[in-house]
């Protein structure tokens, strides 16, 4: 058994964090787990007593049912995390119901994984963080790496014992979520656009093959640096090393330690992946995800855009 498997006595982090050389270099190594770690945790029975809940969050609403990590539960970004009426995330009461039904208590360690290099997993982790859930971690490499390594999947329905009750905690958006007005007020400070170069320049208004999320205008928010999300990931979907991430965001994109950063994409899922890298792997204190992203900005009335490969400038007087 992995020696890291002892339970913390103080009850702050019920499941011990993983220690390895790659993670140790990150600002917050406690936010990532490897597939090996998770396999050992499952073998050690950590999901059986409620200390650990493994959550799968995918783009496709049925992918979990087609085969998932044994004992994991599903959280769907559309049907679970979004409010039916208001175009917003669910409120504290709905989140408490969701978490309780998934067997999650306020002090549960939650490990999230998903398809497409963890886009929706990072997004779900970000939403859990809006509710201040303390211990939520990402499975480095996600679903694809787990499968590529030949690890076990099952179609068995997970028998969930609801938790004793998740408290109703209202979302605290301000620290990690930017609204359109916040982005306008952010003018002059660093923005990271994580979409494809074609979306950034305005040649395309949507990702290849995703026109249903299209917008009226193509381009980017003035002054935003273009760093497509995938550049933070290795080919196996794991995050790049701290050194490589620093070269990318501090070097190429020109961020400086202590910067107040806003990241955005098209609907906020790819930028959750980058938000995670900036916040937890590089340790920027103030990083916000603009989840309205280009579907809002590219359709919004009275906001400026920049077109082409140059970053552009905010109009004077803005």
């Amino acid at each position: 058994m992995c020696p890291g498997w002892a339970v913390y006595g103080r009850g702050i982090m019920p499941v011990a964090v993983e220690t390895n050389e790659k993670f140790a270099a990150y600002a917050h190594p406690e936010r990532l787990v490897s597939t090996e770690w998770l396999a050992e945790a499952l073998a050690a029975g950590a999901t059986k007593d409620g200390r650990l809940v493994v959550v799968e969050s995918d783009e496709d609403v049925l992918l979990y049912e087609s085969g998932h990590i044994p004992g994991s539960v599903k959280v769907d970004w559309h049907t679970d995390l979004n409010d039916d009426v208001q175009r917003d995330y669910i409120d504290g009461a709905a989140f408490a119901l969701l978490a309780t039904a998934k067997g999650i208590s306020r002090d549960t360690t939650v490990v999230v994984y998903g398809d497409k290099s963890n886009w929706w997993a990072a997004y779900a982790l970000w939403v859990f963080t809006l509710f201040g859930h303390d211990d939520v971690r990402l499975l480095d490499g996600g679903r694809d790496k787990w499968i590529a390594e030949g690890r076990e999947l099952t179609t068995d329905r997970t028998e969930v014992t609801p938790s004793a009750g998740y408290p109703v905690v209202e979302r605290n958006d301000a620290p990690i979520r930017a609204y359109k007005e916040d982005v306008l007020a952010h003018a002059g400070k660093p923005l990271i656009d994580v979409r494809s170069p074609e979306e950034y320049s305005g040649e395309r208004t949507h990702m290849p093959a995703y026109p249903q999320e299209g917008t009226l205008r193509g381009g980017h928010i003035p002054t935003a640096a273009s760093v497509p999300w995938a550049r933070a990931a290795e080919s196996d979907g794991t995050y790049r090393s701290r050194e490589e991430l620093e070269a990318l965001y501090l070097g190429e994109a020109g961020l400086q330690a202590g910067d107040d950063v806003v990241a955005y994409c098209r609907i906020g899922e790819r930028s959750s992946h980058t938000w995670f890298a900036l916040k937890y792997l590089l340790g920027f204190e103030t990083v916000r995800n603009y989840d309205g992203s280009w579907t809002e900005w590219g359709n919004a009335v009275r906001v400026p855009i920049a077109v082409g490969t140059e970053r552009g400038e905010w109009p004077t007087g803005n």
Binding site: V61, L62, D76, H78, T79, N82, Q212, E213
Partner: peptide
């Protein structure tokens, strides 16, 4: 529509 979300339903209709 409710089980898979309206956005995904648009893909199906397409």
């Amino acid at each position: 529509t409710r089980a898979i979300s309206p956005l995904r339903m648009r893909g199906m209709s397409a």
